[in-house]
């Protein structure tokens, strides 16, 4: 028996379990782009100044989770009843002006974003959207996939189902490998990545991994125009 080898086995298994559990927790989470951008900017500033302190974290608001749940409930109800989807959801969001993105990013909670669409995400230029084959639509589910990607299939299934259920939602799947310039521009690091793009070409939310169908419906319902 090799003592070094045994040590390596134990170390690798501990590291692998940590990675696996972390991935299971974060996989498919639909994150808010604007909040993410602020977080990244904070991290960069901290790194640039060589300050060790963590970036500013907003106090996690209990309202955020409640509002998200209410919105998703409203969306589901509206979806079943055929009543104004976006209207019900956005009223909930507007009714709570104090709602801030939950910095803790709990799985299963779709982050609320600012009601002012112009401040959310970056606006993609028309050329980029054309190269990716994204036509105009109220909401686009823009999926980046690759050939060696088993979960991409699951994302495709969920996205096409949501696109079929909700009018005004289109699903566009792009092969990441053949669009590397766009992949770099959009900060895509792994497949599957799903971007939720609004009518104005803003990337409002993104999910890496496989989001659940209710989460995706709730996230998309916020963006649909009032029926």
């Amino acid at each position: 028996m090799d003592v070094l080898g045994i040590g390596v086995i134990v170390a690798v298994l501990v590291v692998a379990t940590t990675i696996g559990l972390w991935r299971r927790r974060t996989d498919g989470m639909i994150r808010d782009e604007a909040a993410d951008k602020r977080k990244r900017a904070g991290l960069l500033a901290a790194a640039g100044l060589e300050v060790v302190e963590l970036p500013d974290r907003k106090s996690p608001s209990a309202n955020a989770a409640t509002a998200a749940k209410a919105a998703s409930g409203a969306a589901a109800a509206a979806f079943h009843g055929g009543v104004g989807v976006g209207g019900a959801a956005s009223k909930t969001a507007d009714g709570r002006p104090g709602v801030v993105p939950d910095a803790r990013e709990e799985p299963g909670v779709v982050e609320e974003n600012s009601p002012d669409a112009s401040t959310v995400g970056e606006s993609l230029d028309q050329g980029l959207l054309d190269r990716l084959g994204v036509g105009p639509a109220p909401v686009t589910l823009l999926q980046f996939s690759s050939a060696f990607c088993a979960p991409c299939r699951a994302v495709r299934r969920v996205s096409t189902e949501v696109a079929a259920l909700l009018p005004g939602v289109q699903h566009v799947e792009v092969d990441a490998e053949s669009h590397l310039a766009e992949v770099r521009e959009l900060n895509i690091w792994r497949t599957p990545t799903l971007l939720i793009v609004d009518a104005g070409g803003h990337v409002v939310k993104r999910a890496t991994g496989v989001p659940s169908k209710p989460q995706l419906i709730a996230a998309v319902a916020d963006l649909l125009p009032e029926a």
Partner: peptide, 8 residues
């Protein structure tokens, strides 16, 4: 598979 896009 995860590393594939990174490598590309």
């Amino acid at each position: 598979c995860e590393a594939y896009l990174l490598i590309k």
